[in-house]
């Protein structure tokens, strides 16, 4: 369980892992938060994402996190109660995302979008592992 920020020439890349897919996805929020300059989390937002595959779910999840920051003027902190449910066609993710308001003195990185570049979500060596490149 954990995450790691990786080298990328133009943008940012990270990987995350966990005993369950839920845990790996939760870790990805911590990685995201470290990249943008997040804090402890004062308020929560409930989100829901539905997608056709594991990778599409991760892509849409990242998209949702970026959207959440942009429209609420907040910086993300971490996820709680993250659940992934298998549907007839695809997956549904629900989570509570903790965030803080952006103050004038704060410097928050503006993320443009998620990418499919080098993305994976897989079960390997007894753990769920994922990797994301974000366009900044």
């Amino acid at each position: 369980m954990g995450y790691e920020i990786l080298e990328h020439t133009a943008d940012v890349k990270f990987k995350a892992s966990g005993d369950s897919m839920e845990e790996a996805f939760s870790e990805s929020v911590k990685a995201f938060s470290e990249i943008v300059g997040g804090m402890n989390g004062q308020t929560t937002y409930s989100i829901e994402v539905e997608s056709e595959s594991h990778e599409a779910l991760l892509f849409d999840f990242m998209d949702k996190l970026i959207f959440l920051q942009d429209v609420n003027d907040v910086v993300l902190s971490h996820a709680e109660h993250l659940e992934i449910e298998e549907l007839e066609k695809g997956y549904r993710l629900r989570a509570d995302i903790w965030a803080d308001n952006i103050e004038d003195s704060m410097s928050v990185l503006d993320v443009k979008g998620p990418t499919y570049s080098e993305m994976y979500v897989r079960f390997e060596d007894g753990k769920w592992r994922l990797q994301v490149v974000l366009d900044i």
């Binding site: 943008v36 920051q69 003027d73 907040v74 308001n101 952006i102 704060m106 503006d110």
Partner: peptide
């Protein structure tokens, strides 16, 4: 005067 970064309007 010119908003920079995220969340500055």
């Amino acid at each position: 005067k010119i908003p920079c970064g995220l969340g500055k309007g």
